[in-house]
């Protein structure tokens, strides 16, 4: 139980995917303009990450490892993630069309999101069992969402700020992102993780 809690806290706060590992920067900058889309994207990523962690772990343990095909893990994981994202897209289009429209291009982009592939690969690297993998995937998604929502709040405030011409747009966004990232280093060493 303690181990699960540590994995979760580690993935959400200490080793936050976006702010410490620098995975998934594209959607982090792309979808964080509005809190509402940030929530939607976060939800989609949590869902895909949790599911892909479970599926990739199963595929690896029962298909790749017994046949000595470890070297195929990257391509197989991408295949799994791509199929999952397509599936999520179809389901969203049917049941939550508003969210489907709000996410727009970023939903298909989860397919090639390194954060999702990263969590799948880290699961294998850290020798997690199925439960741990799912928890890790889930909390990595939650950490991603947390970063996205925190940052979208900051960007919404930035809209009203008097920013020097040279820093307007992406530059000030990068600076803000760096500052948030620095703030998250405060979690380093928490619970000995």
């Amino acid at each position: 139980m303690k181990e699960i809690l540590l994995i979760a806290l580690g993935a959400i706060l200490v080793n936050n995917f976006v702010l410490s590992k620098f995975l998934g920067i594209c959607p982090f900058l792309g979808v964080s303009k509005k809190s509402s889309t940030a929530f939607g994207m976060g939800g989609a990523v949590i869902f895909v990450m949790t599911l892909s962690s479970a599926v990739t772990w199963t595929v690896y343990k029962f298909l790749l490892e017994p046949n000595g095909l470890d070297y195929l893990q990257t391509i197989v994981f991408i295949l799994v993630i791509a199929a999952l994202v397509q599936f999520v897209e179809i389901v969203l289009k049917r049941f939550i069309p508003a969210l489907f429209k709000a996410l727009g291009i970023y939903l298909p982009l989860i397919t090639t999101n390194c954060a999702v592939l990263g969590s799948a690969l880290l699961n294998i690297e850290s020798n997690y069992n199925l439960l741990h993998s799912v928890v890790f995937g889930l909390s990595a998604g939650v950490g991603f969402t947390l970063a996205l929502i925190l940052f979208s709040g900051i960007r919404e405030k930035l809209e009203f700020c008097d920013i020097p011409d040279a820093f307007q747009g992406l530059p000030i966004t990068f600076i803000a992102a760096a500052l948030v990232s620095v703030a998250f280093t405060g979690f380093k060493g928490l619970f000995g993780i």
Partner: peptide
């Protein structure tokens, strides 16, 4: 085997 596994998936 790899071909079968990947294409099967």
């Amino acid at each position: 085997i790899p071909v079968i596994i990947v294409s099967g998936l």
